[in-house]
């Protein structure tokens, strides 16, 4: 039984007067992987940052329309952005562990949200690292700096950090673009694993990656949502000519 978790209703995003997203309307299903694809500058990353309101930091950015998460509009007045971001985790393009220990990196979020007891923190850190498939590699060096890990390990640390606040949704902004093929394969494997517990929205410029790991795919082009459908259908028989052109590599 598919259930809608995130619902975008006529979302427009402006930077000053430039309209970067145009009337984006679609639904993200719970416990699925939804891939956002499209050529660079198409607005897919900007849309991702609308879902946890990270665009708030860009003074010139303005959002119109509604995004419903679990049924309530996150752009309504009086929404608690901090609680929203706790519920919507994010993993960035470049691995960005804090310059602190592996343990403190993962415990950062829970500590912010008031978890103080040592044994509860220990357990959360362990579960998150296990969930990010990093536990076995780092369990003996939790006190060493997170910045000392390899690129792929760093990214999995960032995933562990993101799931440590027990979010429902995980946003991933081209999480493998800075990694080598081996590390990429491990992250992809991990994403398939993660969807058992989380709803994942992933931005990728790599179409094979979208095809391999996602259940549904949304194709963005110059701020428009061109097509949105089940991934197998998108990659075998897209409705729109532009989708087909992009997928078959005729542009982008």
């Amino acid at each position: 039984m598919e259930k809608i978790l995130v619902s975008s209703r006529g979302v427009n995003l402006y930077y000053d007067s430039a309209r970067v997203l145009k009337d984006i309307t679609f639904d993200v299903m719970e416990k699925q992987v939804t891939a956002l694809i499209g050529p660079s500058g198409c607005g897919k990353s900007s849309f991702l940052r609308c879902i946890n309101r990270m665009n708030d930091f860009i003074p010139s950015a303005r959002v119109e329309g509604e995004i419903l998460v679990g049924g309530s509009n996150i752009y309504a007045g009086g929404v608690d952005v901090i609680a929203l971001r706790r519920n919507v985790g994010m993993v960035f393009q470049k691995p960005n562990p804090f310059p602190m220990s592996i343990y403190d990196n993962v415990a950062y979020g829970p500590r912010l949200h008031g978890v103080k007891q040592k044994d509860r923190l220990d357990e959360t850190v362990k579960q998150s690292l296990v969930g990010a498939a990093l536990w076995d590699e780092v369990k003996d060096k939790l006190k060493t700096p997170g910045t000392g890990l390899s690129g792929g390990q760093q990214q999995r640390l960032c995933i562990a950090r993101a799931i440590a606040t027990e979010p429902e949704i995980l946003l991933m902004d081209e999480p493998t673009s800075a990694l080598d093929p081996m590390a990429t394969a491990r992250i992809e494997e991990l994403v398939r694993e993660l969807k058992k517990r989380y709803t994942v929205v992933i931005v990728t410029h790599n179409m094979q990656q979208a095809a391999r790991i996602s259940d549904r795919t949304a194709f963005f082009l110059m701020g428009d949502l061109v097509e949105y459908d089940a991934t197998p259908k998108m990659f075998t028989s897209p409705e729109d000519k532009r989708t087909e052109d992009y997928i078959t590599g005729r542009f982008g």
């Binding site: 929203l84 971001r85 985790g89 994010m90 960035f92 804090f98 950062y108 606040t165």
Partner: peptide, 24 residues
């Protein structure tokens, strides 16, 4: 991107400044 990571975990500006930016 360190600030982004902190904000994305639900930290306030003060928490981000005190726990991430200033220590770095």
């Amino acid at each position: 991107d360190l600030r982004d990571a902190s904000y994305a975990l639900g930290a306030t500006r003060f928490e981000t400044t005190r726990k991430v930016v200033v220590p770095s």
